[in-house]
Design a protein around this nucleic acid. Structure first.
Lengths: 212, 212
DNA sequence: GTCTATAGAGTGATAGAC
DNA sequence: GTCTATCACTCTATAGAC
């Protein structure tokens, strides 16, 4: 961290403190202390707390945009598993974004509105994976109208509230990407065709049972 | 509200304000203003803010305990649908409890630890419904180990983060119990046997499509 | 670019009169 | 039971020296 400029240090420290204490509970003094500068100096680099939050949001926004744009023409099972790994990393990097949902909505409408955009993109992307894999004969025909819309939404919820879920259940152990991904794949499992099950066993099981 | 005593008025107003503004953002002055008393008087009835929160938690605790104890010897589909209706009412009565998750964990460890107890009871209750209905021939044999544990957990997540989900997606319309219950039933649907599908169509569909 | 010092607006809690 | 007045404290933001 020694070769970073002060502005970058502030952002890194802010993200860390937001994750530990929540957006609303982080004091400017804490951020300043964390990197050994004064609050006055902090104010020189960022006009106010909102400006810090805004800058953090830009970093976060770049990360999620990159994950979402990785969706390509061949959204097969491996591709989805890969994207799930990316989501997991994102979750680990910005827990506050998923835990402080309401506080963010209140304190920072701009983060909230960008979130809504990403959420809708993410859900429709997951939804399209079902269509594609249905055509490939991997996923069965929709049993009931709205079932896949519902499933896409459920998968998004399970991903996004992963931290909140663990917190509410009092699960303190170190979360692994394998457990995370298995949770999501289990939602999809009952919709696999026989061919889908075979592909899942061959390609995905090794990834969630024997991590590289 | 005219025939309630001051203590009860304080609790009702507090719940309302917690739901509107979040636990941490409600000022003692606001609560006092809401029912037309002074902050000094508020302090006479409740030693401090924590005491108010504690009392609200007792109400909340009674409500959820009652819902959970309604699980009886015959946990059939109708019974579960009925319990889902109860959960929905509970969600509508105490949104703050499901939205301020992390804030509650930080401000009130006693609420948090009681929550964990209820969560674990709720999930294991849902899990037992699968066993029972599997024996009844309504639910298929478990396709993969851990699938029903996973499903029980997913159902709990979908219920508990219903408000948070709507908030993140920016859904503002009036939520109906039918949409809520349909979301949960859709998670169960792929696991119905043929007999299960028939029972679902006959008994549950009318309840989620044509509300009484 | 960085610091110290302080203004200014809350916020919870308490003392004491009625 | 209910009020007013006030204390002690926290936090953001800003002014001005170096």
């Amino acid at each position: 961290m020694a070769d970073l400029n002060t502005k970058q240090k502030i952002l890194i420290a802010s993200i860390q403190l937001f994750n530990e204490n929540g957006l609303a509970n982080v004091r400017l003094q804490q951020i300043a202390d964390e990197i050994g500068i004064s609050v006055g100096n902090l104010a020189y680099h960022f006009k106010n707390k909102e400006a810090i939050i805004e800058a953090v949001n830009e970093n976060l926004d770049d990360d999620i945009t990159e994950i979402l744009s990785a969706y390509r023409l061949f959204p097969n099972l491996i591709d989805f598993d890969y994207q799930l790994s990316k989501y997991f990393s994102f979750l680990q990097k910005y827990p506050f974004y998923f835990l402080d949902l309401l506080e963010i909505e209140r304190m920072s409408p701009s983060i909230h509105s960008k979130r809504q955009h990403h959420v809708s993109k993410m859900i429709s992307q997951i939804r399209r994976r079902f269509d594609f894999n249905q055509r490939r004969g991997i996923i069965i025909k929709e049993l009931r109208e709205g079932l896949y819309d519902n499933l896409a939404n459920s998968i998004w919820v399970m991903i996004s509230f992963w931290h909140a879920q663990n917190s509410a259940r009092g699960i303190n152990g170190i979360p692994t990407p394998e457990k995370f991904k298995e949770m999501v794949w289990n939602l999809v499992y009952p919709y696999f065709t026989e061919a889908g099950k075979r592909e899942f066993e061959q390609l995905i099981i090794p990834l969630i049972k024997h991590p590289s």
